[in-house]
Structures are given as structure tokens and as C-alpha cells.
Design a binder for these strands. Sequence first.
DNA 1: ATGAAAGCGCTAACAT
DNA 2: ATGTTAGCGCTTTCAT
Lengths: 346, 346
Amino acid sequence: MSEPGDEVVASRQHGKRPTMLDVAREAGVALRTVSRVVNSDPTVGRDVMTRVQAAVRALDYQPDERARQLRRGVTGLIGAAVRNLADAHLVLGAIDRAAREAKLTVLAMSTEDEEQLEREAVMSMCRRRVDGLIIEPISTNHEYLAPELAAGLPLVAVDRPTGGIATDCVRSDNAAGIGMAFRHLTLHGHHRIAYVGDQERVFTGRERAAAFRACVAASGGVLDGMVHPGEVEPARVAHALDQILVGAQPATAIISGSAETTVEVLRSLGPRAADIAVVGFDDFLLADLIRPALTVIAQDSATIGRTAIELLLARTKDPTRPLETVTVPVELIPRGSGELPPPAGR
Amino acid sequence: MSEPGDEVVASRQHGKRPTMLDVAREAGVALRTVSRVVNSDPTVGRDVMTRVQAAVRALDYQPDERARQLRRGVTGLIGAAVRNLADAHLVLGAIDRAAREAKLTVLAMSTEDEEQLEREAVMSMCRRRVDGLIIEPISTNHEYLAPELAAGLPLVAVDRPTGGIATDCVRSDNAAGIGMAFRHLTLHGHHRIAYVGDQERVFTGRERAAAFRACVAASGGVLDGMVHPGEVEPARVAHALDQILVGAQPATAIISGSAETTVEVLRSLGPRAADIAVVGFDDFLLADLIRPALTVIAQDSATIGRTAIELLLARTKDPTRPLETVTVPVELIPRGSGELPPPAGR
DNA sequence: ATGAAAGCGCTAACAT
DNA sequence: ATGTTAGCGCTTTCAT
């Protein structure tokens, strides 16, 4: 009536997954022993171990991570609240790779650039008790995270700083990047350089516009009508270009403040792109296929992602260590568009 | 010595998070009552509810999802094993959006096109007891998932079918897409059309190459030296283009079998891209900025992602429903490169 | 309308 | 080297 194989079959049916207790019964040992085998505890006898492993395979047993985590207190999950999952999000890729090396899984949630969604995503991750949180801040006020911080949650801001709370942070050297672009264009003979970028409401937009203004001021150039932060909207960008290119003293070069802006600028310029120098902040896929190929200030996404994980691990190991902001260098990649000379006579 | 506020402070320190029991004590009610309030049970008295909510806020209590999930049996997590997190992964974005609408969180893990990583990612998600799994198959054999399937795991394959197990599936109409590209080029006067694509080891590569051969055969055209599946390597693609474009009867048009291939083809063609018609399978960002702008067969990523979630939810609701494979239509977007005529005299 | 007790599946002390 | 007993923090019967 009750042959050895019966239980196996029974456990396989019903959509019921076997528990450690099922395995213990199957192998004729105590539950604790199964736990030992599953966790590779060396103090298990060879034959018992073999029996347990056989039972594990016979039942297709897979330990329930939820229970382990509840008991152990850690989840092995790193939360990542990023602007977008669909875009080419190189930083996320780097975070994922670095996390995998540290035996951690990344739970990435999209904030879609909405403060409300950021908050929901972040709190939902906290309720899942992620071991750490990487956040590409959208909100300007992150005081809602203060209790989590106090409870010991390691938190790293990426690309922008958080507001209202002090955290570790990794970001690109925006000012240096704008400076490199400006000098590059200057060296190629440009004296009237314009800036089109993101809205200054966003931290990076603010910082890059400020850096641009500083460059112009330092070089004794003209600012008037040359700085155009704002929404990344075709109409707004087209209008900005009008202002820049029309008139007695049109700009001969453009620095664009973000990848999204660059794309709009290029679309809006159309054929005129052949006659005006452009340097874009942020590299993107296929920037080399455009004609002229696009000169960019490239952010080091791989380093940013890896550093984010490193900061997270460092804080996990030592919660009392001083806060750190890592500024990652950027690189100018000349491809053609930034080396166009100004039209003769300017 | 022991004033009302003391406990609050005590709970806030130490990096210890308050539990439901702490809240219960703070509010002077039973743990069960806190649970009711947290879960919006309507049978709670108004004043008790207020007291509990006050305690929740005072302690910054956040329920531990791990414990809830362990008890309730569901995680609210959908696993997604996709090729890459960093690339522009529009399907993942669509999955994320559809999941959010269904109050589900997506746990995305990258397979990096490696069978081993796919398996590890998938099994790790199963151990986390995801409520369902979406998989962009890399492996050709997914029998390792049979026990999970038997245990009732809803599983949907995206872009490609699984091997060795029967699952629901969403994929693009590859054959129709290749057909559209072929007819489009034919209508624009091309008689010698070549195909460069992914290796046939990959399902989509196989299917698209096969569809291309069928098109040529049906049109009575020449196959010889015209079909070039293989690695997406600069050298391999360049070699394929040599074969296609050199000789007495060079091709006048190219269909490329994937976005990655298209990029390599365009890079390799360089200026020659102005003189040869190209239709690429799969759209990509900025395909409109290239000159000539790229004509593509665009996959409907939004529909694919949404359908994946729909199939998952349908199977969750009714585990016995018949398996379904949804084939999503593709669309030809003419932008210029696919409308180039053959050189005069061919 | 509220509470006491059991238990989800596991690991961690503590035996033996 | 193996087993027994407590919980982890919550939801769920089942009282009251």
C-alpha cells in the first residue's frame, strides 16, 4: 500500500511545493539535517548527505527564499529606483553586473521621472526589506527616507544628490564635462557658443547650465541669448535654436546638455547639422552613425554603476563610515561634429 | 523613568525596525488589531483605528513584506529573465508598465545571452517564489523548469519559444516581417536582394533566414551567395557584405535580420549606405537621424510586453486553460533607406 | 469589534 | 554527527 515512491508522487502533484520537512521525511532524517545539507554545512555525514541530496532531487525541492530571508534577516536584494527600465540604461547594467559579482540580486523599479512613483517604488522596496537601495533621485526632498536611513538602510544616490537627507553619492563631473566641451570648441575656433539643455529644475540640468555660464563668463564671451535650459520638447528646442542661429551674431557651436536634448537638437537642425559644431553631453548608441558623427562628453556608466555597489557594500560593512560623494570623470570623444570649424569670416 | 515617549525613541534607535507587536504595544491594542488596520479591514472601530494609525506613524512602521508573503503564499513579484538590462529593452518597459497596473512588481534579471546565467537567474527567481515568470529564452532546453511548471508556476516565453516544455508564448510575426521587407524592396525595383542576419542557432535568426529563403524561392530569385546568417561581428558582417556587393551580379538591396546586425551593416557600409537599399528588422532609437534614415520592420514591443503580462494573469486565474501562442504583427516604417531605387541599369 | 493562538518554511541556539 | 526547540513577523482560523 505504501511503497517508497508514493510520497514522491504525492508531493509532485497538486501544485504543492515540497518543504524541507517533506525532504526530511523522504530521507528519513530530521529537518535540521536537511537544512544543513542545503546550506553545505560540513558537519554532515557522507551517507546522510547523499540520502538527503537524493531526496532533494526526487522531490525537486527548492528552498523557499522568503522563509530563509525572514529568518536570516537579509534578502540578498538591492533596490534600484531608476528613471526608466526601457531606455538604454547603462548604469543599471553596470549595477547589475557588479551586484551579481557580490552575490546580490537587483530589484529595479522605474520612477518614470515622477516624484510620486519614486516614492512608491522606494517604499515598496523598503517593505521588501532590500539590503540596500540605489536611487537616481527624482524628488528634491527625500526626508521620507529618514526613518529607513535611521533603521540602517544603506542608501546611495546616483547621478544626482538626494534632498533633505545626507547619503553617499556617485555622479559624473558635470562641470568638468561642460568645461571640456567649451574648451574643445574654443580650440576649434568658436567664439559664439550656445547651450541647449534640460530644465534647471533637474539637478543635472541646473549644474550643467551653471557650468556653461561660468565658462562663458571666464572666457569673456557673450551670454545673452545663448543659454537655453528647458523642457525636452521639439517646439521648445526648435525655438531655442531659432534664437541661437538667427540674428546678426548667430552662434557657431552648440553644447547640448543631455542625450535627450541632443537628439531633439539634431532632429530640429536637420541638414543644418552639417554646418554647425555640436558637442552633446552624454554618449548614446549609434552616435557614430550620424553624419557628421557626434562628438560627445561621455559619462563612465560602468564606473558609476560599479561605484554605487561599492559604496553600498562599504556602508553595509561599516554603517558609521563617513559619507562619501564620488565624482566620476567624464571623457570627450571627438567624432566630427565637435570639430567643425566656424563658417569662414566669423 | 518610563514616560509615554520613551518606547518610541527606543524603537527608533539601534537600526531596529518596529514590528507589528511594537505598534500594538504603542497603541495599547492586540497585534491582530494592528494587522486589521494595516490591511484596511473595515471592522475596526474608528477610535482604535486612529490610535493604531498614530502609533504606526509615531514608530514609522512599515510592514515586512517577507513575512506577509510567507504567510499569504504570494509575493506580488513577476520574474523576468531577459537578455539584457542595459540595452534599450522596450519590451521590459512595457512589461513593467503592465505589471504595475496589475499591482505587481517586476524582478528583472539579465541572462547576458548565456544559458548558464539564464538557468541561474530563473531558478533564483523560483526560489524567491515569484508569482509568475516571463522568459526570453536563451537555452534551447528548458526541461529544468518542468517541476516548477508542475508546481503551478505560470510561465510565458517572449520573442522565442521554450524548448522541451510547453508554455504560453508571445512573439513577433517574423515571417510576415521579412515578407513585408522583401515585397517592399521588390516594389521599389529590386531583383537582387541579400540577407544578413543573426546566427541560425538563435530561434529568431533561424526563422527570419528561413522566411527570407522562402521569399526568394517564391519570387524565383537567386539565393546563391545572398543569405548570410552568422555572428554579429564586424569582420563577419564585412565579409558578408563583400560577398554580396562584389562580383558580376551584386545585390542592390539588403535586409538585415536584427537591430544589432543592422548597426554593423551600416557601420561596415559607411558611405556606401547612400547607394544601397536597406531594410532592418527591428526598429531602434535614432534610426531616423541616420542618412538616409533607416527603413525598418518595427516590432510592437508595447503589445508584446502587455500581452506577456496578460497571458501570465490569465494562466494564474485559470491554470487549466489551453496553452496559447500570440503572434504580434510587425510594421514596416519607410524612412528612406528602403526606398532607394536600384542603380540605373540593374 | 477585538483578541489569543497557531503556523507559513526556514535558520539559529542549544542539546545529545 | 544529528535532533529538538524556538522563533523571524506576519495572516488566519477561531474564539469572545
